[in-house]
């Protein structure tokens, strides 16, 4: 067992991860993790490749349901309700917890339909035009696409596609947005725009972002969790983690000595 230093945020937690372990067959990818995600903040999860950070993220919206070899132990509470219980419907859970993926994955439909697909299949009562405009504006892409809402989303650039995917996610008005390395496939300029966007969005949403890019974590997050080999090593205020980390292991990773 590695040394740990965990400082719980003082804000109210939206998601509370308790003693979570994730196994793929016999391999334990996430080991007894306790993590509380504060409301309307950006929480960054950093750590070297294969340390279990994406696995943890995908547990929060039950994406492992499609993985027959995955087994989860422990609890994840969303506003007090344990979402890992068999009785919890993963489909309705995912309405409340949106996700943005590593590679932009717009549907091969028009920009307009991409936004509306989620609310429509879930039977939300909506004003279509209004929701499309509002979501695209919030995702800071409205000005670029307002003239071609009925073009295929595939015709957009990579950065635009990713902002469309964010717009599609916020059209569902989720409580939490999970982002799995959302900028790793984008150029620096698009990355900058998405980072600005994340800072905007935290006023309304709680954001958990997995990133490989430590500068990115330092720039946009309020709290940072450092993972190593499936364990949560250090968790606390981002400024503190990046300036005066408690543990040597965290310091070594952040200063680029390994990972």
């Amino acid at each position: 067992m590695n040394q740990q230093s965990i400082t719980k945020p003082y804000e109210k937690a939206v998601v509370e991860v308790k003693n979570l372990s994730v196994f793929f067959n016999q391999n334990e990818a996430v080991k007894k993790v306790n993590l509380s995600i504060p409301i309307n903040k950006v929480t960054a999860i950093i750590g070297p490749s294969g340390c279990g950070k994406s696995t943890l993220l995908r547990s929060i919206n039950r994406m492992h349901d499609f993985e027959p070899i995955a087994r989860l132990e422990g609890n994840i509470f969303l506003e007090g309700e344990d979402i890992l219980l068999k009785s919890v419907d993963a489909v309705s859970l995912r309405r409340k917890i949106g996700m943005v993926f590593q590679k932009p994955n717009p549907f091969p439909k028009t920009i307009y339909e991409n936004i509306l697909w989620g609310p429509k299949i879930n039977g939300f009562k909506i004003n279509e035009d209004e929701l499309v405009e509002q979501s695209l504006r919030q995702a800071a892409i409205w000005d670029e696409v307002k003239g071609r809402l009925f073009d295929s989303a595939i015709s957009l650039s990579g950065g635009q596609q990713q902002r469309l995917c964010i717009a599609r996610t916020i059209a569902m008005k989720p409580k939490v947005i999970l982002m799995d390395e959302p900028c790793s496939a984008l150029d620096p300029r698009s990355t900058g725009r998405i980072e600005d966007l994340i800072l905007e969005l935290k006023n309304e949403y709680t954001i958990v972002i997995v990133t490989h890019n430590m500068q990115q974590a330092a720039r946009i997050s309020d709290y940072t969790a450092f993972f190593y080999d499936g364990e949560l090593i250090e968790y606390g205020n981002t400024s503190k983690i990046f300036t005066t980390p408690v543990l040597k292991q965290t310091e070594d990773y952040i200063s680029g000595r390994f990972g």
């Binding site: 994406m63 499609f66 489909v91 995912r94 993926f101 590679k103 994955n105 697909w117 299949i121 995917c165």
Partner: peptide, 22 residues
């Protein structure tokens, strides 16, 4: 691609909606 299915599931779609509509 699997990523397209995941994107659809992440919006609260059922398996049938993902299969037929995406």
């Amino acid at each position: 691609p699997r990523s397209l299915r995941e994107g659809a599931y992440a919006l609260g779609a059922t398996r049938f909606e993902v299969s037929t509509q995406i």
